[in-house]
Design a binder for these strands. Sequence first.
DNA 1: TTCTCTACTGTGAACGCTCACAGAAGCATG
DNA 2: CATGCTTCTGTGAGCGTTCACAGTAGAGAA
Lengths: 343, 343
Amino acid sequence: MTMNAAGGRRRPPTIHDVAREAGVSRGTVSRVLNGGHYVSPAAQEAVNAAIRRTGYVVNRHARSLITGRSDSIGFLLTEPQERFFEDPNFNVLLRGCTQALAAHDIPLLLMLAGTEDERRRITRYITAGHVDGVLLVSSHSGDPVAEQLRGAGVPLVACGKPIGLASKVSYVAADDRDGARDMVRHLLSLGRQRVGMVTGPLDTPGGVERLAGYKEVLADSGLEFDERLVVSGDYSRASGEAGAERLLGQAPDLDAVFVASDLMAQGVLAALQRAGRRVPQDVAVGGFDDSPAALGAVPELTTIRQPWDRISTEMVRVLLAQIGGEDPAAVILPTELVKREST
Amino acid sequence: MTMNAAGGRRRPPTIHDVAREAGVSRGTVSRVLNGGHYVSPAAQEAVNAAIRRTGYVVNRHARSLITGRSDSIGFLLTEPQERFFEDPNFNVLLRGCTQALAAHDIPLLLMLAGTEDERRRITRYITAGHVDGVLLVSSHSGDPVAEQLRGAGVPLVACGKPIGLASKVSYVAADDRDGARDMVRHLLSLGRQRVGMVTGPLDTPGGVERLAGYKEVLADSGLEFDERLVVSGDYSRASGEAGAERLLGQAPDLDAVFVASDLMAQGVLAALQRAGRRVPQDVAVGGFDDSPAALGAVPELTTIRQPWDRISTEMVRVLLAQIGGEDPAAVILPTELVKREST
DNA sequence: TTCTCTACTGTGAACGCTCACAGAAGCATG
DNA sequence: CATGCTTCTGTGAGCGTTCACAGTAGAGAA
């Protein structure tokens, strides 16, 4: 490390300087920088030493100019901002993705499309080729953005299965149906007879699948499906609270509730408590996600863990593969039942 | 808009194509692109039409290569990941900053430095000149990152006053002390006599200032400062809960609590409720931040609003000014008392 | 007329990198 | 010895911009 890093804002060393310092040509330095194939060990060594001595860092713009890649990817969230503010799942995912990308030395551009205007602006930005690919988080199906980007040939990986899309879109998702089954089986195993459910929005795959899992287990257990036991929410805490109130009105005899997200489950807990029902003694409550919200709840929520770390690393892996020319792929990851105080 | 945008992945039009299409030179197109000074109205028009017809978008890498600017900025969060997961304030700020930057067509790179390793990696990335400036969020003082970046000459704006820094660092902050004063005055105006406080960490400016405001108002009102009425937390919900428990033990006669953050206030509410104290009848609770957590609380929190929109737009404004060569600046914004159910 | 000044325009030269190609060296094979 | 193959290296070109500079044209002043 020489002075120029700490000192004033001198012109940073270029590949040229490194080449001169190492006594080789630009080409050789470039080869070392890009994997080191077809480079003799001696040259390899000399270049690395020169890089260390000069404090050289590659100029990404010059590289991008010629490769045509930007070596950066976008994290696109097309949800209303209230959801982004409320749901810590986004933060977990965001953190996971930045970390996974950091391992490849790829920066993450945050793109929040809360309004129609922003959506347009961002779509233009992406299709202009300013990012190599996009990690998409958008729970609702029929989201035009995925279709649009796919149509423009932009590599894309969605978090959760995007439904109703013409073109093939990669996605990584937890096994929603299986997770739901686990939770409902767990509630039944506690001896509960009247298990209610607050579903997610039914135009999202998560909403549909988790409800399907609930129904399956009821059927398998020989229990009649009672539609008074099912209400639907929109993943927000407030909708969980409202849902629980409706549920208590329609089916006051319920002794358990499976809630399709931890955030809604927080709302359910609040409503139950206000109605004088003790959790878990009177009513057992199971959530879904294992988001930070599950631990923040009182009592702590029993929930279905979505493997967020693996989801984010897989999203990044699939996206990079696709940028590398591979075909779109779907990855389904297993969930896990986490027992806590609420059941 | 011609076919090439919708169709396959053709080579995108360059400034050259636009120039030919408009019947002018590259230089003229470039001038139009960069503000349009010294360009005749006719040429201006022709170029704009050509841009529209060809669907041209500037190649940012080519531009950056020559200007030396990256035209992107980093949003750096040096907090442990638990805090990022728990506190929606970060999301609000993040959203505000992306929006403010979008107005300048500048992308935001998200940098989460939870660990020491990441911190090093990110610092290297930034000092390598890959971003033009940094929006820093780091509550704790003595954070070495600010000093390091400042030393490397990187334009920097902190959210909240960074204390104990040798070099001058720009910052934007709410008027913590004044906000605290407002809240305590409000509590006293309700007739409360024994007002407790859960402070933030006392090595953060927010922690110190809000406590100072509390003390000031007590003194002004002729009330004795009672150290049993004050405990400190770390802004987390759990620390609020623990703080309230300690407070109830030390000073069971308290009839109000001023809590230095909404998240901690949520914890305080939970602890009070468990102890059988009604809010606001028995104990009034005031928060700070007006984060989304304030509305999620039961009962809804009376709090001091930090003007997050203005904070983020000011941070961006000050940062861009600094990139443009201006000196570091400090901006203090007024807070506002928001009355809700908890007082 | 001639000169100067202003408003505008075109042109070459970078910026720092990668890529394709050409060539050199070493070694085995015919 | 020539030939081919593999491994390694250097070189020129070019990626798409902006910038500095050298113009040109027209208006006004001397």
